[in-house]
């Protein structure tokens, strides 16, 4: 197993933008999207996030796995919510409605009713989830992991916390290698992950021969690392960072745009009380 990040330079405009501005954009969009259930407003967000996705030049091949994962998961949830349980959705916005078909449920003497409204609501859910997903799915592929620490430092996180991120990234390849060595070592002792029929408890216990050595080895290494850091004065005073970020005009434009979206969204929702569930034919 090789633990690799998906990041590679895509030569897109997106990568020229300061990562801090991109995080601000992503979060402003997230908080705006979740305010609304109005298909018309959500479509605007959907278009913006899709534009970002295509501008990023991230390929289908790279994100296939993630998309399938998210679509399958949300489809199951939406299916169950629409067909089976979803009676009380968002404070009962769509209680009642136009029946599409109904099914008499034996024994209970009630009718199961699937309404047109429920289907429109399911579509709205998809739109929201896909917008949020395309907002965040591209991040790992377009953001240099080297910049995470300094980015969060720049967003106001304390030195030590920001450095923890850099340090965690430093350990990833080492731990991945150690895991491989341990896996080989245990296999050479006849260990097989999937050995015949086992119940779930035995299956989990079977992870111990892999997890214990890797974890304990890392903890033992941790002490040396902490010494090495103390000897080089870590955490004794405010540190400087050689990776540095500069906001450029474009970054300010993006941040301004993000804040504008959030402010407008908040005003629409709470000032004008707009944005509840909407479907064609509703006023």
């Amino acid at each position: 197993m090789i633990a690799n990040f998906g990041y590679r330079p895509h030569q897109s405009i997106l990568e020229k933008i300061d990562p801090r501005a991109r995080w601000i954009f992503a979060f402003c969009m997230l908080f705006s999207i979740v305010l609304f259930w109005d298909l018309r407003i959500l479509s605007v967000f959907f278009v913006i996030t899709l534009i970002q996705f295509f501008v990023s030049k991230v390929t289908w091949q790279e994100t296939k796995r993630a998309w399938i994962f998210i679509l399958v998961l949300s489809s199951i949830m939406i299916f169950i919510n629409t067909i089976i349980t979803g009676v009380e959705t968002v404070g009962g916005t769509i209680r009642g409605g136009t029946p599409l078909f109904s099914l008499k449920i034996p024994l209970f003497e009630t009718f199961y009713v699937l309404t047109v409204e429920r289907l429109w609501f399911a579509l709205t859910q998809y739109l929201r989830i896909i917008s949020i997903a395309s907002l965040f799915i591209i991040l790992p592929f377009t953001m240099d992991p080297r910049l995470y620490g300094v980015t969060f430092k720049g967003l106001g996180f304390p030195d030590k916390l920001a450095y923890t991120m850099d340090l965690a990234f430093r350990f990833i390849p080492t731990i991945a290698r150690d895991f491989n060595v341990t896996l080989d070592a245990q296999r050479a002792r006849g260990f097989e992950i999937d050995k015949g029929k086992m119940n779930i408890f035995q299956r989990i216990r079977r992870m111990a021969p892999l997890m214990v050595p890797v974890t304990m080895n890392s903890i033992l290494a941790g002490e040396d690392i902490a010494n090495a850091m103390d000897l080089r004065c870590f955490g004794l005073k405010k540190r400087s960072w050689i990776e540095n970020l500069h906001f450029k005009t474009g970054d300010f434009v993006l941040i301004g745009f993000s804040i504008l979206i959030l402010v407008v969204s908040l005003y629409l929702r709470f000032g004008l009380n707009l944005g509840d569930f909407w479907m064609p034919g509703m006023s």
């Binding site: 340090l167 965690a168 350990f171 731990i175 890392s218 290494a221 941790g222």
Partner: peptide, 11 residues
């Protein structure tokens, strides 16, 4: 704590 938080996260 910084070191063990980073190790825990990476693990």
């Amino acid at each position: 704590e910084v070191v063990f938080a980073a190790i825990g996260a990476a693990l």
